[in-house]
Computed example of a mutant assay.
Amino acid sequence: MKNLLALSLKTVQGELYVLDQTLLPHQQHWVHCTTVMQMVTLIQRLQLRGAPAIGIGASLLLAYRATQGDSREQLLQAAEILRAARPTAVNLMNNLDAMIRALQQADFADAAVACAEALFAEDVALCQRMAEHGAALVQPKERLLTHCNTGGLATAGVGTALGVISLAQQQGKTIQLWVDETRPLLQGGRLTAWECQQLGIPFQLICDNMAGMLMARGEVDRLFVGADRIAANGDFANKVGTYSLAVLAHYHNIPFYVVAPHTTIDLSCPDGSAIPIEQRAADEVRGVRGAFGQTLWAPEQAPVFNPAFDVTPACLVSGWVLDTGVYSQADIQTGILQQFASKSQQAMV
């Protein structure tokens, strides 16, 4: 396997390493990942997170196992175990489907490696094209707002929404970024803020419930968020709290964009009601856990509702920034998402 390097994933002399995102921003620790169950744990504990990165990480692990002599049957079983690791992120399902097709070939080990490497390279290219399309929307000196983490930590490339924002800054547009802390796991505060420091993006960290006040004061010009799954009608699932931002942006007449590769489109979901929403552990809401340990601020047995994602309806979206271009609600109503997803599926057969 080639030596590959992304912000959260790398392969070195055929070995796979994952940057433990739960220890950021204060510790950078690479985990040597060698087994299927280890990868499942890394994904479920959010040590590896971000829809594209999850799919690529799972694919690289299958490729690594193929180089270690696992049989076709063992690899196919492993793919199904990995598929169940995070149910909402459709990139994981799409990438594993591509790997399964590779495993049907006679030289399945070499085919698995080639497929995983191709998926990695594809994501790098998709991220760059999304960044270029989205950055063209940003005007000089705009104040942008984003939610969760959508940068290089979540992909193999420059990211989705944060990739757009980073390129706009590189183009000299002198933007200012509001970064939602993103409760309950603080991916904005821990990860996006860290990436912004690395990239030189001027930012200010805010609590999630401050966004509406900023919009009312006229201090937000445009929003960019990512997606874990886009339904055929343009509805999309993203980190919980995204829907609230979309409603606020709609009320205040502020452009709201979702940025994602075409590989995030799921034609099997006709609309957002068909997107499975992952429920996570109660302790994530009762308190906080990080490199410092764990702190509980709620009663230990307090009942908790903890969906990882919410669904934003297409009617609240100003535009879909894909690697193929920027599309309006009128475009979406013509069925353009189905065209892109169908072409993608045909190319992967």
Rank of each mutant, 00 (worst) to 15 (best):
L214E: 05
V259D: 00
P52T: 06
R72T: 10
K173V: 09
L322P: 00
V285E: 02
G325Q: 05
V259Y: 01
V349H: 14
L24N: 05
G287T: 02
A302Y: 10
A125E: 14
A274K: 12
F203P: 01
A249T: 05
P255F: 08
E195L: 01
R129K: 14
H32R: 15
I201G: 01
A79C: 15
V321L: 04
G234A: 09
A193Q: 01
K239W: 06
Y243D: 09
D228K: 04
A237V: 06
Q176V: 10
R286L: 11
L267C: 12
W30R: 06
I336M: 09
E117D: 13
W30T: 01
R72Q: 15
G69R: 07
Q104C: 09
A216V: 10
D323C: 06
P270C: 09
I201F: 06
W320I: 02
I277C: 07
Q68A: 13
P276T: 08
V36W: 05
I175H: 03
I201R: 00
A156F: 03
Y243Q: 10
A66C: 11
R289A: 13
W297K: 12
M93L: 14
R49G: 05
Q339N: 12
A118R: 12
T264I: 06
D123F: 04
L322Y: 04
E15A: 13
I230R: 01
H32N: 13
D228L: 03
M210S: 11
A154S: 12
N91Q: 10
A156I: 04
C115V: 09
V285A: 11
Q339M: 12
H26R: 15
I56K: 05
T264D: 06
G226M: 03
H133E: 09
I175P: 00
V288P: 03
D323G: 02
I201K: 01
A106N: 14
T150S: 11
N3H: 14
T264G: 06
L316C: 05
I201P: 00
K173Q: 13
A231V: 04
V349Q: 14
D70W: 13
A308E: 03
Q68K: 14
P303T: 04
Y64N: 10
Q28R: 15
A85L: 07
S328V: 09
A125S: 15
V31F: 11
R190K: 13
G287K: 03
V258M: 06
M93R: 14
A58W: 03
Q187F: 02
Q204H: 15
A302E: 14
V124W: 08
R229A: 01
R190P: 06
Q21S: 02
R183H: 12
H133I: 03
G218S: 08
D110T: 13
F224I: 00
N95C: 12
G163A: 05
C196R: 00
E195H: 07
A302M: 15
L48I: 08
L126T: 08
T263L: 11
D271E: 11
S273C: 12
T242Q: 05
M39Q: 06
A298N: 10
A249M: 07
Q176W: 13
R129C: 11
Q198P: 07
Y251H: 15
I56A: 04
H250C: 11
N95G: 15
I277A: 06
F236E: 01
P140G: 08
N91S: 09
V258Y: 01
H29V: 14
H133P: 03
R222G: 04
I175W: 00
D208V: 08
D97T: 13
F108D: 01
